[in-house]
Each structure stands twice: as C-alpha cells, then as structure tokens.
Design a protein around this nucleic acid. Structure first.
Length: 299
DNA sequence: TGCCAGGGGTTCA
DNA sequence: TGAACCCCTGGC
C-alpha cells in the first residue's frame, strides 16, 4: 500500500492508508498487548517497542516512534503489503455472499480490520493463555508475564513497559511461580513446557515457516496447550495463513445462526466455511467474529 | 453479603 | 465423548 509519512511533533503522521481502523484492528480479538487510552487511540507493545497510535480522520498518528521504525516494524505488523480491497472483492464473489447479507454487513461494520503479523512466540503463549479464559484476564496475564520475565523497555507516560519474554526467559521458570505471579492458573505448565519445546527447537519458530498449512498445524498441535482452535489462531495471526478458520464458541454460534440453522460439529463447520468463503476464509472469520461479538449475534 | 455460573479450549480418562 | 480445570467478574 502506498502511503506518505510526515513528521509531526513527537511522532509521525501516516497519510493515505486504506482499509485501516485501529478500533477494528485491536478489538477483533487477535492481539492482547494494547490498551485503549481514548477514542480511536491505543498504546501498543510489540517487538520490544511501545507506541501510541491515534486515528485522526483517515490519518494514522504514531507517537514514540520514527519513520524508520514504522517502515521496518509496524508496516509488516499491520500487514500493509496486503491488498484488502482485493480480499474484500474476492469475498464478494463467494458463495457466502449469495446466501445472505451477513458477510456484507460484517465487512461494512469492521471495514478497517487487518490481520496482524505478530511475534510467533508471543502469539503461541498468548493463545495458550486464552483457553477457557476471558479477554480482560488474558490481557492481564500476558502483561504480568512480560513484567515478570521480559526485559524492561521504557517508561512511557508514567508507566513501565516490558517486552514479551523469549523462550529462553520462560523455559526455566518455576510453574508455581508463573501461576502465582501471572494468574494463568492451570495453564502454567503448558506455558513453561511449550517454551522449553520451542527453545529446544522441537518446534522451530522460524524453521517451520516453509511448511504447508496442514503440516505446520500438526506440528503446532504437538505443543502442550495447543489444540485445534489455538493452532488455527497461531496460523492466522503469526504465520500469515489466511486460509485458516479458527472456530471458537462465537464462530460456532454465528455459523450456526447465520448460515446453517442447526447445531453442527466443528469439523463440518470447517469444511462448510471452506465451501462458502473459499481461500480467504480467515479474513471472513475475522470480519464475522468482530461483527458477531460487537452485536451479540448468536448469544 | 455470599454463592455460582461461565469464559476465545485442552487434556486426560 | 465428557468431566475437570485456575481464576475472577458479573448476576442474583
């Protein structure tokens, strides 16, 4: 995507972004290390950086960062190389679009969603924490994990920020301490054991990048605490696998309510999603998930 | 005030 | 296939 960057006091202004909205991006459930500071304004911690973003009309304002960092780190993070007009156009040609207006409404509602390219290890651990959990608590645990085991980044606006720990920083952590400090409960052993497996390259974070979706998925599932749903989220949010369709309770309900009309097993939902959304089903999932949650559809 | 359900699933029988 | 699982907030 073509855009221009202008310097402003304390930061930069990015002009010319399309299909981009901070609220849609951060409140569609894909990331956990952000805090909303005011309307259309978020402090985000990722890749060892702390940045404050604002929307001002169509422009994105970014503080505590530079043009260099934006192009190097935030450009890929926000998936700015991808053409979301194209994705939306392709989705408009799918079978789902002919069935009813749900996908159209969802795409209009969350028009500025982008699927982030997040740090792989952080995504794996964060989604292990997400199992049978609630978003505010997941965010809290991830923050505490960084505070306890990560590196200090900086103090920004009176608050200390820490990077997400590396596999090496977590592999020898005492599970009991992890539990007591970060409030992750029964997920503590999963976090430590998976960190060990990744540190040992039983799961090779970058080395497995070239694997097919299915092969990568089966390697992910071997990790303790990673089942079908968590694996799908990791594929979609950290490995840029847009054909992946994570099915959680919300997606199950919305698929049953909006498309199928009866209760159905997850495996059937997956093949049905394939049929009606095609190769962009991961994007369809994000639009629908955000739409369904914000409007309590199927609840 | 206190009790209880339930949550972006996974694991273990 | 089904129960159990830390923790904690919201509803009664």
């Amino acid at each position: 995507m073509e855009y221009k960057i202008e310097n402003i006091e304390g930061g930069i202004r990015i002009v010319g972004l399309k299909n981009f909205n901070l609220t849609h991006i951060f409140e569609c459930g894909q990331a956990f290390r952000w805090e909303k500071t005011e309307e259309e304004s978020y402090i985000v911690v990722a890749f060892g950086r702390v940045v404050e973003f604002f929307m001002e009309g169509e422009d994105l304002l970014a503080y505590n960062t530079s043009e260099d960092d934006f192009r190097k780190i935030w450009h890929p993070y926000f998936d700015l190389d991808k053409d979301y007009d194209q994705i939306k156009n392709d989705l408009r040609k799918t079978k789902a679009f002919g069935l009813n207006d749900s996908l159209k409404e969802a795409m209009d509602f969350g028009y500025g969603i982008r699927i982030l390219n997040q740090d792989r290890f952080e995504t794996i651990i964060s989604f292990i924490i997400s199992a049978n959990n609630q978003i505010p608590r997941i965010k809290k645990s991830v923050d505490l994990l960084a505070q306890q085991y990560g590196d200090f980044i900086e103090n920004y606006k009176g608050k200390d920020y820490y990077s997400f720990p590396s596999p090496g920083q977590l592999k020898d952590a005492d599970p009991l301490e992890v539990k007591e400090v970060t409030r992750v409960g029964f997920r503590n052993e999963r976090i430590v054991n998976t960190s060990k497996a990744i540190y040992n390259k039983d799961f090779d974070l970058d080395g497995f990048e070239s694997l097919s979706d299915e092969k990568l998925r089966s390697e992910l599932i071997k990790l303790e605490g990673v089942g079908p749903k968590v694996a799908a989220c990791i594929l979609l949010f950290a490995y840029d696998r847009g054909e992946t369709f994570p099915i959680d309770v919300w997606v199950k309900r919305l698929m049953e309510t909006l498309y199928i009309g009866r209760e159905i097993k997850n495996k059937e939902i997956d093949s049905y999603a394939d049929e009606i959304f095609g190769v962009n089903k991961g994007y369809a999932q994000q639009y629908l998930f955000y739409y369904a949650r914000e409007n309590a559809i199927g609840k």
